[in-house]
Each structure stands twice: as C-alpha cells, then as structure tokens.
Nucleic acid binder design. Structure first.
Lengths: 126, 126
DNA sequence: ACTAGATATATCTAGTTTCGATATATCCGA
DNA sequence: TCGGATATATCGAAACTAGATATATCTAGT
C-alpha cells in the first residue's frame, strides 16, 4: 500500500475529477479501486485537500441533500458535497501532469544512470 | 526549478551514493548538475536527511580532515563528512526504485486514462 | 596581507504537512 | 434495533520544509 503524499494526492484527485464531478468519499474509493488498492488517500488527507482546492478556485462545489426513499421530506438527510473541476483546475491539472512528467524523466536520470558513468568520487575537487 | 520532497530526496541521494561515496556539499552540487539545475536540495534539507540515513544504518560515515597544501600540520583544517552506502542502504535503494516504478505506473493510470472510461458520475451508488 | 566568494557542516524557527484518532450524523440490510 | 457502511470534518502530536543564521576553512585576485 503506497500512501499518497500531498503533491501526488492533488494530481490524482484532479485527474479523478477530470473524468467527472465527484465527492470526497467516492473519490477516495475511486482511487483505491483504480489503483488496485495500491493507493490510499485517507479522509484526514482528503478533506483538507479538497478544501484547499476549493479555496484556490480549482474546483467548484455544490451540496446535495441525499434523501432516503421513504424519508421524512422535512429531515435534512445526508449531505454530500460535490466537487467539479473548474477551468482553472483543468489548466492546473495540465501543468501538474507536465511537472509530473518532467520530474519522472529527471528522476529516471538518477535511478537509471546511463551505463559507463560510474565513478568512485563525486566529481568535484576534493 | 523543482524542489525535491523528502521521499524523492532520499531516492536521489541514495542513487547518488550508489555511484560512490560522497559528502553533503558535493551531493548537493551533484544533484543540481545531474538534473541540469532542475532539482535542488538545500543544506537545511540535506543534512537532516543524511543524519537520518546514518541513524537508520543506510549509510556509514567517515570524517576527513582536509589539509591545505601549506597548512599548519597541527591545525584541524576543514572537516568533510563522507557518506558511504551500506548493504542495508543498497537494499533500501532497490526497494525505493521498485516503489518509484510502481508509483509511476499507477499514477500513469490516472493521468493517462484509457480511452472510453469517461463517466459523469463516480460509479458509486448515489 | 587582505578580501571576497566558494566550500563545508550544522542548527534555529516559523510555517506547513501528515496521519491516526475523534466527532457527528445518516443509510441500509439482517 | 443493531452493526457496518456511507459521509464530512476537525484535532493534536509528530514530522517535514525552507530561509536565515552560525561557524570556519580554502582559493583566487589584488
């Protein structure tokens, strides 16, 4: 189980929302499902992140009152907060994806060093 | 300029040390050079990280007394702390690389969704 | 000899992030 | 009516981040 750090959490959540509006609990389950259970984003990480996304204008929100079939029409019912990717959020997602690719390619330069570059010292003057 | 977070910092530092022993300042320069200036790991991030690596037994350390050419043999000179990847550190690096690949491939599943999986709702019961 | 800038390690502090625990409340099947 | 799943949200301790600060040496230029 790989726990997502905030940077990757934001990328993943934004990606999930790019496929359509969703809400906290569903996003969390979606991430677990789409990663075969490898990724986990807990509630305590999810909600502060979604709040930040909203504050930064990357998503817009709407409350839905989920009424049970035979529920009292006067009862408030269960609240569900939907998150929709905004135009700004879409742009941010594209930026994030680009940064992610750049990070990956440079990181690969470290974890996949070209053959023949082995050295016993750092290369700087001792 | 992409600032490395601790997770990636550890991966990168371990990777640098896998190519040969080095010391804080040189590692920092090495990272900047090998990433074309894209990655930065500041001193305030580097030294606590190296200390943690040492504490966890992933690296072994040796102090070197760097004497100037005509320096007083009795002077203490500049100190330089060398870090060498241990067997445990080598194993940890391999684990980290594996995790990194796994993270990348799953993340790609989010940022490069297979065509045709678009949906307007989360897929969970509403 | 003096000076500036690079080399070199390390800590401090304020702000941010992390993560499990906790709180509240509803829905649904047995 | 009870337990587990659904659903959002905050709390607090610990870890992490990043710039500033501290100390000291080396090197090149003047």
């Amino acid at each position: 189980m790989l726990t997502l750090k905030q940077d990757n959490s934001e990328l993943v959540v934004l990606s999930v929302l790019a496929a359509g509006a969703s809400y906290g609990y569903a996003i969390s389950k979606d991430i677990a499902a789409r990663s075969d259970g490898h990724f986990k984003l807990s509630a305590s990480g999810m909600y502060p992140l979604l709040t930040k996304l909203e504050k930064n204008g990357l998503v817009t929100t709407d409350w839905e009152e989920v009424k049970a079939a035979g529920a009292d029409p006067d009862s408030s019912g269960r609240r569900r907060k939907w998150y929709t990717l905004s135009a700004k959020g879409q742009k941010q997602l594209e930026r994030r994806i680009e940064m992610h690719r750049q990070m990956q390619s440079i990181l690969d330069g470290f974890v996949l060093p070209a053959s023949g570059n082995a050295h016993t010292e750092s290369g700087l003057a001792g």
